Simulated assay, not measured.
Amino acid sequence: MLTVHHLRISQSERIVWLCEELGLDYTLRLYSRREDNNLAPDEYKALHPMGIAPVITDGDLTLGESGAICEYLDRKYGGAKLSPGPDHPDFAGHLFWFHFANATFMTNGLMALVTARMGEVPEFVTGRTQKAWALAEARLGEAEFFGGAQLTTADIMMGFSLTTARSFGGPSLDAFPNIAAYLQRIGRREAYRRAMEKCEPGMAPRID
């Protein structure tokens, strides 16, 4: 049985969304953050040696890392329908944004958040963050989705940083009309709405 272990207000919401897009049969377990430090509870940390979200269990398998989980689920259970193949015109674009999501976009956001709490954001962090947002804005001016003409796992990966992660800080969408329009499109997807109702009950999705 496939189980998605979702830590509230974390990037594991990606996996819930993916399961809903693929129409998978899965069990969802919700974990609330600790009240004293807002981190994952001990029972969540015990799921995987890294002690961080996301985590899935599938029979005897325990798997972490957003990208690995997305590829695993889409290939094993989804027929790779959200991952364009090498002969597809969106293949390279999908790959770029799938990896850019955590390797660059989310990393820059985390560096900005941490350094701001320490007192000052270094210029190189500010510059990289601005470039990343500008690149995302430009992409959505030329394509309907990060993955290209259709939603792919690249959109699953990018979505969290553009939505829920902004609860921790980030720029206003006023300067990013293409991103704002994209999030409205995502917010109209039934799978996304179901996912957010399940993994963040009572919380309005951060799509504006």
Rank of each mutant, 00 (worst) to 15 (best):
F91L: 09
S83Y: 05
K76Q: 15
I69E: 01
F124G: 03
L61A: 09
R117N: 02
A143L: 03
P86W: 08
G64A: 15
K76V: 15
G127S: 14
R75M: 05
L61D: 10
D60N: 15
L113N: 08
L140W: 08
Y72F: 14
E123M: 10
L61G: 10
I156R: 04
T152R: 02
D60P: 13
A132D: 13
G109Q: 13
T152S: 15
L151C: 05
D87S: 14
G109K: 05
D90C: 10
C70M: 15
L135C: 06
Q150F: 04
P89Q: 10
S66H: 00
L140R: 05
G67Y: 04
F146T: 08
Q130R: 15
F146M: 09
A136T: 09
E65L: 00
F91E: 12
D90S: 12
G59F: 11
F91S: 12
L151P: 03
A138C: 04
G59V: 13
F146D: 06
T107K: 14
A154P: 07
T62W: 01
K76Y: 05
G85T: 05
G127I: 08
N108R: 13
G79D: 09
A101L: 05
L61T: 11
F124N: 12
G148T: 07
A132E: 06
A101P: 08
F145R: 07
V125L: 01
F100Q: 02
G85I: 05
T153H: 02
T62N: 03
A103I: 11
V121I: 14
K76F: 06
F98Q: 06
A143P: 00
E123T: 10
L151K: 06
E65N: 00
R117W: 00
D87P: 00
H88K: 07
E123W: 03
G148Q: 08
F146N: 08
P89W: 10
R139V: 09
A101Y: 05
S66M: 03
A136Q: 07
T62K: 14
E120Y: 00
T153M: 05
T104D: 13
K131N: 11
R128E: 15
G93K: 04
L63I: 03
E71M: 15
F145D: 06
